[in-house]
């Protein structure tokens, strides 16, 4: 991959929660308009890693970071970086669908509104576009004023994706987006990720190795806070280089 295609790159990233080190010297290049999957056992640091990218770890007390996370060549931890703008450009979808307890419409309009869009027509457009992009418009187009929490789990998660798309990000971080969903809803989200990657750079943390294999172009394997192996997904799953990667993906752990 050419360096001009790298959208995000972590360089020697270390992270401590208090005195416990959660990330050790992690360096990963994330290619533009590709899906990069992060896999590894629980507590290996993969979720912690993506939370460094949009600085969600800022919210956690006692969290300390060294190293760099370059977004379009610029370290997101530089002093004059506006976190609000950063998080607007790097969206995030969480493990559990977390729609706000308001209407479907207001959920999608939430982001644009806090970033200053007030005009009704403009909001209507954003809501429709986002829901369409998240493959949810056909299901909820007629019931936009219904509470978002009335939707099924899978619909809620797509709503959360639509909500993220509404602020027009460049990157979307998925933190185990399907772990609370049934297989059909999971398949729909995976299809959606495949479509979205044409317009967005996607990073997905997943416990489900088959999911990583299905949706991603590149895969990084984490173990105990270290990034053990990074490569093309087809290589990682057919012939990993590192023994521990092989042991993990073939279920020979511990």
């Amino acid at each position: 991959m050419g360096t001009e295609d790298i959208e995000i790159e972590s360089r020697n990233l270390n992270l401590w929660y208090g005195s416990a080190q959660a990330l050790k010297d992690v360096s990963i290049p994330i290619e533009k308009n590709r899906v990069t999957a992060l896999i590894g056992p629980s507590g290996c640091g993969k979720s912690t890693f993506i939370r460094c990218i949009n600085r969600m770890n800022d919210l956690i007390k006692g969290c300390r970071i060294t190293g760099k996370v370059l977004f379009e060549g610029r370290d997101v931890y530089e002093k004059d970086v506006d976190v609000v703008v950063l998080r607007k450009r790097i969206g995030m979808v969480f493990q559990k669908p977390n729609p706000f307890p308001m209407s479907i419409y207001d959920n999608i309009a939430y982001g644009p509104r806090i970033h200053g869009t007030q005009a009704k027509r403009e909001l209507d457009e954003v809501v429709e576009d986002s829901l369409k992009a998240a493959a949810l418009w056909d299901e909820v187009g007629g019931i936009l004023d219904k509470p978002a929490l009335d939707l099924s789990g899978g619909q809620q998660q797509r709503l959360c994706i639509a909500r993220t798309l509404a602020v027009k990000p460049d990157v979307i971080l998925f933190d185990e987006p399907c772990s609370a969903l049934d297989p059909i809803s999971t398949a729909r989200i995976e299809d959606l990720i495949n479509v979205l990657k044409h317009d967005y750079t996607i990073i997905i943390v997943t416990h489900n190795m088959q999911q990583a294999a299905r949706v991603s172009d590149h895969t990084a394997f984490f173990l105990l806070g270290e990034m053990i192996e990074f490569g093309e997904t087809k290589q990682i799953f057919e012939r990993p280089v590192e023994k521990s990667t092989e042991n993990y993906i073939t279920g020979r752990f511990g």
Binding site: M209, Q210, A213, F237, E238, R239, P240, T245, E246, I249, T250, G251
Partner: peptide, 9 residues
């Protein structure tokens, strides 16, 4: 079982 890596091979 969705074998992977050396199992898949």
């Amino acid at each position: 079982q969705q074998p992977m890596a050396r199992d898949l091979r």
